[in-house]
Design a protein around this nucleic acid. Structure first.
Length: 527
RNA sequence: GGCGGCGUAGCUCAGUCGGUCAGAGCAGCGGAAUCAUAAUCCGCGUGUCAGAGGUUCGAGUCCUCUCGCCGCUACCA
């Protein structure tokens, strides 16, 4: 039994929830569910980042106080987690008073450690934005939002001595090539560090909407510093006892590539300064691209997942994203692709497999899953070895966060079961059985022998489906729950926990199950 | 410019330590079967593995160079 603490980034409420948020949260949920199945002590955290200039401005534009504004917008992000079926254990908001207090404590620690000092920051400042711009971010030398010329300004800020951590960060990376995965992201971060780190300003004098610097209330803490600390602060006040001891450090921080620098460099340095253990791994997943381009609102090529989820449920969405795109790499998604995979893989291959299996058990055995033929050990099933291999490999891949590889491994087995039906041809076995039974008379041994082939086939299929409910639970939990009902298995007491991974062992199918027919798991999408 | 990555069948992509690695899925064509959501299964690919050179008994798989894409290159979430 291990410990598993996984996080998504906390989402910036100024943005509108989009497929990227749903993707990250889904992926984190897959990992969290899998580790619960292993029996690990799991904590899965997500939440929202609610401070900063943009939020302050958005609120002002609506004539609301910032807090009123974020209280409203945060609901949309809570809905994302709920809609994708995420089993997050807590939802943190950086406006939680407990978080704010903790951020101040932590920053104070860094200050006391001598890693924060006052200096002046100079740059190009747009008064309308109340923000600084670097030259690259200007459009023809003008503010991209207001079209006005920024002025050169200086402000007194507190700086974090990031440069002092260069050697320790280098050592961290050199000592653990898996600190950031996949490897090319590790290279990126390391090369950034080796180019030389400069101190960073971690406070703002012109902004009000933030957490004030404890020793100088005229300034607020830079929003990224505020945000990163959520991974730590949450454990101090999320429901439950001793969460720090139970869960720190994080097993995985999940994120997209745009925020690697903050998580891979600033965050470890802050933790070093404040004296905390470092996260074990950062995992950087790719972007979902539509039509070969990175999705962006300005390009108008954003794929909105929420109508699809409303219409088809969370499972098909989760399945599609994690199956279509190699986890850790960029990939293309489209509504067309969604429908294609939904129909071919979920409806035809998996859904129909469940249909045909339960239907044949009903038709040939009155709905009762037969016992395996007398004298045939579970391990003698033609599928036993493949099933065991599939479960082992998928487990290893899930442990390594190779989510799409795991799904691929599992799907080979789904297809194997369909092929098995064709190979055994139960309808043919049923005819042969009828003939053999007619010839067997009352001889119990001959009756048993006559029934053995079809019994074996149906039992194998039911057992194969049962295994699938275990290994697919992390990806499509509502579906596997429904499959278990159809197979006549007892529902899990805790739906978010799912069946224990140890049940992914061939031969554990309980005796005496009665299958239940049902509407198609995935009705085909007809166009 | 520097660092990193990518360029493999019509499409989307796998290819861990160099030796059945030339593959999968989709799309297309042909066939079988009928338990099932007309759902399944089987068969069919002459691809210069971007190009050139090199190392090696042997290279998509290592090295060099060229071409074409992409990411990162500091405080914009």
């Amino acid at each position: 039994m291990g410990r598993f603490y996984i996080t998504t980034p906390i989402y910036y409420v100024n943005d509108v929830p989009h497929i990227g948020h749903a993707y990250t949260t889904s992926a984190a949920d897959v990992a969290a569910r899998f580790h619960r199945q292993l029996g690990d002590d799991v904590f899965f955290l997500t939440g929202t980042d609610e401070h900063g200039t943009k939020v302050e401005q958005a609120a002002a534009a609506r004539g609301l106080a910032p807090k009123e504004h974020v209280d409203e917008v945060v609901q949309k992000f809570k809905e994302v987690a709920q809609k994708v079926g995420a089993t997050n254990d807590f939802f943190i908001r950086t406006t939680d008073p407990e978080h704010e207090r903790f951020v101040q404590e932590l920053v104070q620690r860094c200050y006391d450690a001598g890693d924060i000092y006052k200096s002046s920051y100079s740059g190009l400042y747009c008064g309308a934005c109340e923000a600084y711009y670097t030259e690259e971010n200007l459009v023809d030398g003008l503010c991209p939002d207001h079209g006005t010329a920024p002025v050169h300004m200086e402000e007194e800020n507190y700086f974090f001595r990031l440069s002092a951590f260069q050697d320790r960060l280098t050592a961290l990376y050199r000592g653990d090539p898996d600190f950031v995965r996949p490897r090319h992201r590790y290279n990126e971060a390391l090369s950034f560090i080796e180019q030389g780190l400069e101190d960073i300003s971690i406070s703002r004098a012109t902004l009000k909407w933030g957490i004030s610097v404890p020793w100088d209330p005229s300034q607020v803490i830079y929003v990224w510093v505020d945000a990163l600390i959520n991974y730590l602060s949450a454990l101090h006040y999320a429901p439950g006892e001793d969460l720090m001891d139970r869960f720190w450090p994080p097993s995985y921080h999940l994120m997209a590539q745009d925020i690697l620098k903050f998580h891979g460099i600033i965050w470890p340095a802050l933790l070093m300064s404040a004296g905390y253990e470092l996260p074990e791994h950062l995992f950087v997943h790719g972007y979902l691209k539509l039509g070969g381009e990175k999705m962006s609102k300005t390009r108008g090529n954003v794929m909105d997942p929420f109508p699809l989820i409303e219409q088809y449920g969370a499972d098909p969405f989760r399945f599609y994203c994690l199956r279509e795109v190699s986890f850790g790499q960029d990939g293309m998604v489209s509504e067309e692709g969604f429908k294609s995979r939904y129909n071919t893989e979920l409806a035809n291959e998996l859904g129909n497999l469940v249909s045909r299996t339960t239907s044949m058990i009903s038709k040939y055995r009155g709905g009762a899953v037969p016992a395996p033929p007398a004298g045939r050990a579970a391990a003698d099933s033609p599928l036993a070895a493949e099933a065991a291999g599939m479960a082992d490999i998928a487990r290893g891949q899930l442990e390594e966060m190779e989510l799409s590889n795991a799904l691929d491994t599992i799907w080979v087995f789904v297809r194997r079961l369909n092929r098995y039906v064709e190979e055994q041809a139960p309808w043919k076995q049923a005819k042969e059985e009828a003939a053999a039974l007619a010839a067997a008379g009352d001889d119990p041994q001959r009756v048993a022998a006559a029934r053995a082939p079809l019994d074996g086939t149906l039992w194998d299929l039911a057992e194969g489906l049962r295994l699938l409910t275990v290994v697919l639970h992390p990806f499509i939990p509502a579906t596997t729950a429904s499959m278990r009902v159809r197979l006549g298995l007892e529902p899990e007491p805790d739906a978010s926990a799912g069946p224990a991974w140890s049940e992914a062992t061939w031969g554990l199918l309980p005796a005496g199950l009665v299958v239940a027919a049902g509407a198609p798991l995935f009705p085909r999408i007809e166009e």
